[in-house]
Nucleic acid binder design. Structure first.
Lengths: 190, 190
DNA sequence: TTGAACTTTCAAAAGTTTCTGAAGATTCAA
DNA sequence: TTGAATCTTCAGAAACTTTTGAAAGTTCAA
């Protein structure tokens, strides 16, 4: 076994914190950690570098990078004279969260409302159901409808807040000389 | 094995939908299902009743009821002449979600900010760290601080929205004659 | 007291998610 | 082409979560 060397403890600590944020929003913790290591490193890193720093297997790194690229929060970078692919963090991690959350919430709200409506219909068809049950189902349905509207409103305001975050992560300090020399390329296939 | 009889399919469907909502917010699905069965049944139910309707083991029902009472969304009800304890749903399920979510978000945001701050300090102490790293950590910290404020603001507006939900679930149709006769009692010990 | 009816607790089973590691695919220099 | 370096995929391992079921605990009527 070759000796691997993990990252500076401070980077690991920060990466883990970002991992927790990401996990809270329903992604795998590993995605947040990988993003954080890329963000904190001043320049592109290869998959191997990331695996070493975070002590993750090649497979896990590959899967994390694929998913992060799918969300467009990590970009592929080609360095002349390098066989390996390199990766860099996009600063708009928050965009990813906002995008997915809104989709997920919409999907959940819709599915819940539909099932409640179906349940209501079933009770009605089977002769009104037990006393009070129909009224209760009607209430649940109306709450679900209400929730759908509230979610739409939330999503709007959330979007605004997330864009604030995005601004805060970019700006001064961006791009080292080394990084600037690089020819950029965004993921294509898939 | 005694033959058990699950609830009307419509109730199971609705219960499952509520379970998904609850699960989305980080509780066990079973909690939502138990709450929904209690809410949809016009009157108190015993733990055994619930287990039968949802085809859950006695242990799972007991654990779910304990947790739901801890969140004060299910109340214990004593029926004269009954040995068993009975349970009823409180209509403010949303209060539970709001309460917990705000606590969880606050806790997460605080923990993340603190860890990022510590990481920043560590990098500073170890001589500035790699180029650009310190600045990036400063940015992450400021995003975390910003997030803490945004969360506080969210929580306020969310609370307002949740109270709307609560209103929609209560009101007309509440309390059967049977339920009214009952002497109420809220959980004590623990 | 005793025992029947019911509830709670908790170790182990079952279920779910995530990660590892190795085989196969890909890329590129020679 | 060939082979060395690197990446991807995926079956199984590991880690984590939830449920079961049986034993211990409670309560109450007799």
């Amino acid at each position: 076994m070759t000796m691997t060397h993990p990252s500076h403890p401070a980077v690991l600590l920060a990466a883990d914190a970002v991992g927790d944020v990401i996990e809270y929003w329903g992604f795998r913790k590993a995605l947040g950690r990988v993003w954080a290591v890329l963000y904190l490193w001043d320049g592109p890193l290869s998959a191997g570098d990331i695996g070493e720093r975070l002590q993750m297997s090649a497979g896990a790194v590959s899967m994390a990078l694929t998913e992060l690229q799918r969300w467009a929060v990590v970009k592929r970078v080609w360095l002349p004279g390098e066989r390996r692919e390199f990766f860099e963090a996009e600063v708009d991690l928050w965009k990813m969260i906002a995008k997915v959350i809104s989709e997920r919430e919409r999907y959940l709200a819709r599915g819940v409302r539909e099932r409640l409506e179906q349940a209501k219909r079933m009770v009605e068809e089977s002769g009104g159901g037990v006393k009070g049950q129909r009224e209760k189902l009607e209430k649940l349905v109306s709450v679900a409808q209400l929730a759908e509207h509230v979610i739409e409103a939330f999503i709007q305001s959330r979007m605004a807040d997330f864009s604030t975050f995005t601004g805060a992560l970019s700006g001064a300090g961006e791009g080292s000389a080394k990084a600037r020399k690089v020819r950029l390329e965004t993921g294509r296939k898939r």
